[in-house]
């Protein structure tokens, strides 16, 4: 008696399925052209990266590291050794695909996330609505996003980017909101007292003041989208994730560890480079 309320099961899963079907059909005019063209573009971009001889690419990145760090040697050495290791293990091409995936997934997250964060910072009403949505996006197991992603975009890198977008966007939204809300009252008053319009205040005072916080959010977003690489490979996204996945399926400890290490190297490089850009910007 007390074990359950004798009510019919709420048809939630059916509802979600219907909703996904409805979205798929109604927005087909958006999904179809993306499905047609974007995979070709991503392949083209990745092949552009692979077409550069690895050694030259490594050299360019190392030089960049050297100057961005203010001529310190640490990151430069790590760049050279790490990337040479990846190349040596025959993982250069998957690396380029993974980088492409991370790059575009993060770009979309930032392009959408920053304006949403600004909206949240300007309106408590928006903040109250968006915050639980962000919580939902971050805590729902990422695998779950793969299913509608495949429904909308079929398989490959595009649904990978979609899933990554949902999973990785919250930090940049939260940090943008936080950064703008943290601008001191006096500075906001000063902007107002000199007669700024809303846009002037945002561009000339709030965003510059919030920049460091927003950049920290972007860094987190990039790292999260990198963490989606393995999961995205389950729906056919090319890259290092695929090597990890196949190692897992065949219980190959060695190749799995090597591919995993390559992801770690890429993660460290991306993290340090985004932080450097933040510091120098």
């Amino acid at each position: 008696m007390l074990n359950s309320l004798d009510l019919p099961k709420v048809p939630m899963s059916e509802g979600v399925e219907k909703a996904v079907d409805w979205i798929k059909e109604t927005f087909a005019w958006i999904f179809e052209p993306i499905k047609e063209n974007v995979p070709d573009f991503l392949d083209w971009f990745a092949s552009l990266l692979t077409s550069v001889p690895p050694l030259i690419m490594i050299l360019v990145i190392a030089v960049l590291a050297f100057f961005l760090t203010g001529k310190k040697i640490g990151l430069t050495v790590f760049t050279v050794i790490g990337l040479l290791f990846i190349q040596n293990q025959g993982l250069w091409e998957p690396l380029c695909y993974t980088f492409t995936l991370v790059l575009f997934a993060s770009l979309i997250s930032v392009i959408v996330g920053v304006p949403v964060g600004i909206l949240m910072s300007k309106s408590n009403w928006a903040q109250n609505i968006i915050t639980p949505i962000l919580d939902f996006m971050q805590t729902m197991p990422a695998f779950v996003y793969l299913i509608p992603a495949v429904a909308f975009f079929s398989i490959g890198m595009v649904p990978g980017i979609f899933a990554s977008f949902i999973f990785a966007t919250p930090p940049v939204v939260r940090f943008t909101n936080l950064g703008i809300r943290q601008v001191s009252t006096e500075l906001v008053e000063a902007a107002d007292a000199f007669g700024t319009t809303g846009i002037q205040k945002l561009l000339k005072v709030e965003l510059p003041m919030a920049k460091a916080t927003i950049m920290a959010g972007i860094n987190q977003t990039v790292m999260l989208s990198l963490s989606m690489v393995v999961i995205a490979s389950m729906i056919g996204a090319k890259g290092l994730g695929r090597d990890v996945l196949s190692a897992l399926q065949n219980a190959d400890v060695g190749p799995g560890f090597v591919a995993g290490t390559a992801i770690v190297v890429l993660a460290i490089l991306i993290d340090r480079f985004t932080q450097l850009v933040n510091k120098n910007a």
Partner: peptide, 21 residues
């Protein structure tokens, strides 16, 4: 109001409120 703030009144703040960047 904005044009009054721009042209007729200016304000100096206790903690300076300068833009650090």
């Amino acid at each position: 109001l904005r044009s009054v703030r721009r042209e007729k009144m200016s304000m100096v703040f206790q903690k300076f409120a300068l833009f650090p960047f």
